[in-house]
Nucleic acid binder design. Structure first.
Length: 735
DNA sequence: ATTCGTTTTTTTTTT
DNA sequence: AAAAACGAAT
């Protein structure tokens, strides 16, 4: 029995049905832990091994690079095959590949560069300045959201409805922004998709080519597709194409990026009429964990509906711990981790999840002090570090000197006497010539002209010197001769940055290895549309698209730290979910609308379902946030779990929203955190009715601290909920 | 032009 | 708390 046969024998009937589906489009509704990735990969292996299709005819789209890699690994384990010519990747990665191959049709330079979110924002700031737009009224971030949102809906400036002055102006900015990008030969994230879509739509020959080439299109995490991505999929699919969309509406957590869960219903109607398969058996988690997840998510409405079950037994209840502060929370987590490691747990099977990246610092600190190896995913990634972005900017200028964003980043870094004044003049010149900054250098006037020319010559020199160098040496040469190395050497706090720069050379070497390997296998295949990218251009788009996911201490067995978003698709034996406080999880920015809270709930659902065996949830009464101490109250999500599935490790304080008292039920031994004693609370008492200028009438449900430091939790009813106010500051009226 | 110190603003999640 | 923006001094 080969490995594919073995794999197929281990599937349950629903899974097997999905894998061996006849050539018709289908929607697979796959709950968390139901073996979704297995189904997808086994399906591909089965299609190939039964001779129903060739590797080149498969298009598989995932959402993260991690998932794409995982898919390839599993696939090659199932089936000894060459993965060349197979299109597996993220939407952005595939569209990049497509645009590189057809840059002429897309009206882009062969060396077009990709703007990441930061770059895009600075490009927008630059544009707003040159258009003399009031940035108070039109905030760069807001403009960015508008542009990206429009693109994600597939709308060009001409397609956006603008009825009032504000929107008309936004559309005007959008138009100018697109023109600026086009002139500079750069492309932002949503533009990758939109451009690819438009090329495909306008060019029938090309469309026919891809439609006949791809007989099978498989999409993972379909609930996270946005309007444009769905439209792109529809364009690449002919009526004969067999589409398989796999998704879970309960795990849709990317609405902020334009994702439309509705796409699942649309897909069902437009492709998979009655061809829907539900995968409802969960192989990952024990009963209590799954019950908790089910109970939580049942609070949402408009679900497609499914019933996830397991036959693994109850397992351990979810442990909930209320710490006095974020530091105490971290200490608790570290103690538990150490205990588990002592019991023989493997570090990489333990994950610490949090809502926002900023939360990682306290935990990192504690882990570091405890000497526990850990690895942080996300946060400030390798390719997002300032020194790396500087180095990349030099590399981008070598590839395409008209890239104004890169130009601006390094024209005066390290400082070479080109100040704000000179740049302003250069920008004016560029505007009047309708050229890039680079193009305007030749015509620069004023005192800084000579310095600008010297800078341009240096870039030209770098390009000339490195034209025949292999990529790693090229990177080495550029970091050394641009003055970056010298600059950080002179800085006594630049050691880390120097290290990162040499790490960049390693990354380039690693990139060449991987890509070079691909090239040598591709050579035999006559795949006419394979990409023609210079190694440098390839490396740069790699840097923009993958943001250095696995740069850090790879390979070492370490505790895993990441946001809940980053944890999607992963699973661990032990999971800690931190910061279960109102305002943090659910996050305050999403509390204003009901959809936002539902998305937060789905996020919590994703977090819970990551755990196989043991799950902890923690909260802190007091937390440093944005530079000041905040007093949080327990997350509503904790109330949505059944008491049968949880075990409080700390005394539990119940806030009954509509009564006047907070009841402390001591069903577990006290840890001494709730020492209640008679103390001075500025004359306030629990249960007292008060009134606040902004929040209206409320009732004190809990008092903390004493004297000047007395803080009160006050329930202001449905409108504002429970707030924590410092009584010596808050202006309250008593009645 | 650059540096250094002060003030203000901004804080979610990501390809 | 940290970054960015601003302003004054060098």
């Amino acid at each position: 029995m080969n490995s594919l046969e073995k794999q197929m024998a281990s599937l349950n009937s629903a899974q097997l049905q999905a894998v061996t589906l006849p050539p018709q489009s289908a929607l697979i509704l796959a709950g968390a832990g139901s073996g979704k990735t297995s189904v997808l990969t086994t399906r591909m292996a089965w299609l190939i091994s039964t001779g129903q299709t060739r590797t080149q005819s498969i298009l598989a789209v995932t959402f993260t690079n991690k998932a794409a890699k995982e898919m390839m690994t599993r696939l090659s384990a199932l089936l000894p095959m060459n993965t060349r010519g197979m299109w597996v990747g993220t939407f952005h990665g595939l569209c990049n590949r497509f645009l590189r191959a057809h840059h002429r049709e897309a009206n882009l330079p062969a060396t077009f560069q990709i703007l990441d979110t930061q770059d895009q924002l600075s490009a927008i700031k630059r544009l707003l300045k040159s258009m003399q737009v009031d940035t108070e009224k039109f905030q760069p971030k807001q403009v960015q959201n508008f542009i990206n949102g429009s693109k994600e809906d597939g709308l060009r400036p001409a397609d956006v409805e603008a009825n009032d002055y504000f929107y008309k102006k936004l559309v005007e900015i959008y138009t100018a922004y697109d023109a600026q990008c086009q002139r500079e030969g750069v492309v932002d994230f949503p533009e990758l998709l939109l451009r690819a879509y438009e090329v495909l739509k306008a060019n029938e020959a090309l469309r026919m080519h891809y439609q006949t080439r791809f007989t099978h299109v498989l999409v993972d995490e379909f609930q996270d597709t946005n309007t444009l991505q769905y439209a792109w999929l529809k364009l690449i699919a002919s009526p004969q194409t067999v589409m398989m969309a796999v998704g879970d509406d309960d795990q849709s957590i990317y609405a902020f990026r334009g994702a439309k869960v509705e796409n699942m219903r649309l897909f069902e109607r437009e492709f998979a009429q009655h061809n829907v398969i539900k995968l409802e058996q969960n192989y990952r988690s024990y009963g209590h964990i799954l019950n908790a997840a089910n109970a939580l998510i049942s609070q949402n409405n408009n679900r497609l509906g499914k019933n996830l079950w397991t036959d693994r037994g109850e397992g351990e209840p979810i442990r909930i711990y209320e710490a006095t502060s974020d530091y105490a929370e971290a200490d608790f987590v570290i103690e538990e981790i150490k205990a588990q490691i002592n019991e023989g747990a493997v570090r990489r099977d333990i994950a610490v999840l949090y809502r926002a990246n900023a939360q990682s610092r306290v935990i990192e600190h504690a882990l570091f002090n405890a000497g526990v190896p850990y690895r942080v995913y996300g946060g400030l990634r390798f390719f997002e570090r300032a020194e790396i972005k500087h180095a990349l900017a030099y590399l981008r200028l070598i590839d395409n000197p008209h890239d104004d964003t890169a130009f601006m980043r390094v024209v005066n870094f390290p400082t070479r006497g080109i100040g704000a004044r000179t740049i302003e003049q250069l920008q004016d010149t560029a505007k009047s010539l309708n050229s890039s900054l680079w193009g305007a250098v030749q015509h620069a006037s004023g005192s800084g002209a000579a310095k600008l020319l010297a800078f341009a010559q240096m870039i030209d020199g770098l390009r000339f010197d490195t034209q025949h160098l292999p990529l790693p040496e090229l990177v080495d040469h550029v970091t050394a001769h641009s003055g970056l190395i010298a600059h950080y050497k002179a800085d006594r706090e630049g050691a880390d940055r120097l290290e990162n720069l040499s790490e960049l050379i390693n990354a380039a070497a690693a990139f060449v290895q991987v890509e070079g390997h691909k090239d040598s296998t591709t050579a035999s295949e006559t795949d006419e549309d394979d990409t023609m990218m210079t190694p440098l251009a390839g490396f740069l788009s790699h840097a923009a698209l993958e943001a250095g996911d696995n740069q850090a201490q790879a390979g070492q067995d370490a505790v895993q730290l990441m946001t809940v978003h980053a944890a999607k698709g992963l699973e661990f034996n032990t999971v800690f979910i931190l910061g279960l406080e109102e305002g943090l999880f659910p996050h305050e920015n999403s509390l204003s609308d009901a959809d936002g809270v539902q998305e937060e709930r789905r996020l919590m659902y994703v977090a819970i379902t990551r755990a196989r065996v043991r799950l902890y949830m923690t909260l802190a009464q007091q937390r440093m946030l944005h530079g000041q101490t905040r007093y949080g109250i327990k997350s509503r999500f904790l109330d949505e779990l059944s008491d049968d599935d949880v075990k409080w490790l700390t005394p539990r304080v119940r806030y009954d929203a509509w009564s006047n008292t907070a009841k402390a039920t001591e069903d577990t031994p006290s840890f001494g955190t709730f020492k209640e004693s008679k103390k001075d609370t500025l004359g306030y008492r629990v249960g007292q009715s008060v009134s606040h200028a902004k929040f209206g009438d409320g009732v004190i449900v809990k008092l903390e601290g004493s004297g000047e430091d007395t803080r009160a939790y006050i329930n202001f009813g449905a409108g504002f909920g429970i707030k924590c106010l410092a009584l010596n500051i808050a202006k309250l009226e008593t009645h």
